[in-house]
Design a protein around this nucleic acid. Structure first.
Ligand SMILES: [Mn+2]
Ligand SMILES: [Mn+2]
Ligand SMILES: [Zn+2]
Ligand SMILES: [Zn+2]
Lengths: 144, 144
DNA sequence: ATTCCAGTTGAGAATCTTTGCAACTGACGC
DNA sequence: GCGTCAGTTGCAAAGATTCTCAACTGGAAT
């Protein structure tokens, strides 16, 4: 379900719970993401991180972005004509509805769908490791 | 607008009608796409095309994919952990399960899930225009 | 058939992202 | 604290995709 609260999610705890180590680069990158208002790309995050610890590599930024994306901790926005940009999300798994007119992103979670996915995968002989569900939609009832 | 027929679409005609030239590379690439059953990536299409005309460049394959995608003639699947893969857009809608160990793509269709998606969107005040559902999964019962 | 030119191409550079690998280190148990 | 080792890192290299641009060409007009 959607998280209404506006407090900082404890990503370190989530990482620990997922059996993932809290390393210095990850802590720095998480700090940058949780304290920024814009949508930086990997290179921008890399530059900001480098100011704090100049041994951090761009590879690690990309790897951390992929990790956090799979965890559902961040959103990747791949808009045309440029590199992917990132912003923090809420920690719990959820899927996305994207307003194709405005680009707005609405989060939702359907236990039923999650369950159906499991059933389908199983019937095909598979276990789901992760998944991606995105609904590209248009507002009902817009004036024409 | 939507075409119900189940015949091979005449992409060359569509291209002409859109004021786009039918060139030798484009004809070859279209032939490959309309006669394949799988989900090839750009490099695979490039290799197949090269067997027919070894002067075709990878750039042109990418450019043509972008062109056909914009026309709605093909779907691009940006599965995680690999290059984009393509398929013709003519068939019935389906979703994909990706074997994360082998890269194999299995197509499936769940009327129930499709319906739930509609319900969710509607409850959020939206109509779905298109969507993307990808299950990244691992075979059950592998070498124990 | 010839001319013409905007659309298209191939080649390589540029950009963006992932990956292989040896070195390093966080988390856990002693 | 110390040892251990799988997880993680930085670096270099590869991989994926887009872009630049001079050369080429499809197809319309003559
Ligand atoms: Mn989200
Ligand atoms: Mn398919
Ligand atoms: Zn989901
Ligand atoms: Zn579907």
């Amino acid at each position: 379900m959607k998280n209404i609260m506006n407090q900082k999610p404890d990503y370190e705890k989530e990482l620990r719970n997922a059996g993932i180590r809290i390393t210095r680069p990850r802590r720095i990158i998480l700090d940058i993401l949780t304290s920024t208002e814009d949508h930086p790309d990997a290179m921008k995050i890399f530059h900001r991180a480098s100011e704090i610890d100049d041994s951090i590599s761009l590879s690690t930024v990309y790897r951390t972005m992929n990790l956090l994306e799979e965890m559902g901790a961040i959103h990747r926005h791949a808009f045309s004509g440029g590199p992917s940009r990132f912003e923090q999300a809420h920690g719990e798994h959820h899927d996305h509805l994207i307003d194709i007119d405005t680009g707005a992103v609405i989060e939702f979670k359907s236990e039923k769908i999650e369950q159906l996915q499991e059933e389908i995968a199983r019937s095909l002989g598979y276990d789901i490791v992760h998944h991606r569900l995105e609904l590209y939609a248009r507002k009902i009832n817009r004036s024409s």
